[in-house]
């Protein structure tokens, strides 16, 4: 059961985060936008964006306090792939106005046609990439 319930519960917390930020502050809980906009000149929104990111980093610490262990983070990609992947994720999410949180969680929840298209696109390209890497002989 925890196979289904634990991810659902984790997702519900993420959804509660998005709901709280919307109803309290009127903002979208989109991580790429929150982080990306801090890279420019800081305006009146910088303070809440920083606070959100501090909370985001404290989340796994809270989890460790309750669960007694850090969440698993297993990375197989060699460092050139980490750098290429990071550049594409950073540039692509800003160009496309969102990532898994802004388009995925928030956009799907409000049935935004742009977000539906974005989610379908990044899911398809991610699945195709994994297929090529794992089954197409691109590495390993």
């Amino acid at each position: 059961m925890s196979f289904v319930l634990t991810p659902l519960a984790g997702g519900a917390l993420i959804g509660a985060s998005a709901g709280l930020l919307l109803l309290a502050n009127g903002r979208i809980a989109g991580i790429s936008g929150i982080a990306g906009r801090l890279l420019g000149r800081w305006d009146g929104d910088a303070a809440w964006r920083i606070a959100f990111l501090v909370g985001l980093l404290l989340g796994p610490v809270l989890y460790r306090g309750v669960a007694g262990q850090w969440p698993a983070v297993r990375i197989d990609a060699p460092w050139p792939m980490l750098i290429l992947g990071g550049l594409l994720v950073g540039y692509g999410t800003r160009l496309g106005s969102g990532c898994t949180s802004g388009h995925g969680v928030c956009g799907l929840a409000r049935l935004s046609p742009r977000s539906l298209a974005a989610v379908a696109t990044f899911m398809a390209f991610a699945m195709a990439t994994v297929f090529l890497v794992r089954h197409g002989g691109l590495s390993r």
Binding site: I14, L20, L58, G59, P60, Y63, A67
Partner: peptide
């Protein structure tokens, strides 16, 4: 909430 949800 977001960070703990991701961890869980």
């Amino acid at each position: 909430l977001f960070g703990s949800g991701l961890a869980l």
